[in-house]
């Protein structure tokens, strides 16, 4: 057998990824149902943060209304389940398509602005979506939301998603698929162009890149990922209410991306796991979770505005060069 060091790095990385996936999958069978549920929450928000990261970290567009696309995906999947079909694939396809369509419409509006105005308009668009979820009672159930959404049928024999452990496998696979797809995107010419736009959009335009179109596509794709997260969310929880669409969720996802490390692939996962775990742990000890969350916002902006991944990476490089 060849030594690991002689193998191609991509093969090693691939083998490690498969091993990590297998280990994570096995974990679902070992943990209590409560802990598994917590992991599912983490995975859902990881996917949402991963999508936002394409805009915020990769392209440098600070969207503050990303819960909107998450919510649109969740509501759409829920409505398909309640009124049309219990097929996971129909629900997911409809949800992602609707999220991307809303993303396209909002992107057209939001990309007319830049800088601080982009922040404000995405926030406002998010609140409009919240208001629609709240006000359009006949469709969305108003502030009660949609309830009684069952677990979907995947049409795959042997996978029972009615149990928490089974659903965990689905969520894990969904997150892994999202991660792989995002990895392709950020390494592709398209992803490289987004990084270029982040660093110097004027030069990109002068070189011949249609900067607006790249931003728009990034906006739409990012909304699609958020919709996918919404699908996994709504089938797990069985309900969706306007709260999931509002600014509190949008800000929290932004925090996850930043605390993990904007512009990295693993950062959004780290950030999502950190924030979701913290909220569960802290809520077990005190009613003042919001105070702790607020302090987390403040401390991250003060001490780690570039995120954990970057912080660790810098420390690592400093040690190596020392």
């Amino acid at each position: 057998m060849r030594e690991i060091s002689q193998m191609k790095p991509s093969l090693v990385a691939g083998a490690l990824a498969v091993a990590a996936f297998a280990a994570a999958a096995a974990l679902g069978g070992l943990l209590s149902s409560y802990s598994t549920g917590l992991l599912i929450d983490c995975l859902i928000f990881s996917v949402l943060a991963l999508g936002l990261n394409l805009l915020l970290g990769q392209t440098g567009l600070p969207s503050l209304g990303h819960a909107a696309y998450f919510g649109v995906g969740a509501y759409t999947a829920g409505l398909v389940m309640l009124h049309v079909s219990d097929s996971f694939w129909w629900g997911a396809a409809a949800a992602i398509a609707t999220s991307m369509a809303v993303g396209a419409a909002y992107g057209l509006l939001a990309l007319r602005t830049s800088g601080v105005y982009f922040l404000i308009i995405t926030l406002a668009l998010g609140q409009i979506t919240f208001a629609i979820a709240f006000s359009w009672r006949s469709l969305t159930g108003g502030d009660d939301g949609l309830r009684g959404i069952g677990r979907p049928d995947l049409g795959l024999p042997g996978l029972n998603v009615d149990t928490t452990a089974g659903y965990y496998l689905l969520a894990l696979t969904a997150a892994a698929a999202a991660l792989l797809l995002m990895r392709l995107i950020v390494r592709s010419p398209f992803g490289e162009a987004l990084r270029g736009i982040h660093q110097n959009s004027d030069r990109m335009a002068a070189l011949g890149y249609n900067v607006w179109l790249y931003k728009f596509l990034a906006f739409v794709i990012s909304a699609g990922f958020a919709g996918w997260a919404g699908v996994i969310f709504v089938y797990y929880k069985g309900f969706i209410s306007p709260e999931a669409v509002g600014i509190v969720v949008s800000a929290e996802v932004t925090l996850m991306v930043i605390v993990g490390g904007a512009g990295t692939l693993i950062g959004p996962f780290l950030g999502a796991f950190l924030v979701v775990f913290m909220s569960h742990v802290v809520s077990g000890y005190t009613d003042r979770w919001l105070t702790v969350l607020g302090l987390l916002y403040i401390c991250v902006m003060l001490f780690a505005p570039k995120g954990i991944v970057t912080l660790v990476g810098d420390a690592w490089r400093a040690r190596r060069s020392a």
Binding site: Q199, N200, R203, M204
Partner: peptide, 28 residues
């Protein structure tokens, strides 16, 4: 592009007029 390498800067420049600039699957 200050946070990219010399090679990456040139990649962006060369690719700007190529049809592959919107490619999303194959690594750059």
């Amino acid at each position: 592009f200050p946070d990219m390498t010399v090679g990456e800067n040139l990649h962006l420049a060369v690719r700007a007029l190529s049809a592959s600039r919107f490619g999303m699957i194959r690594p750059a």
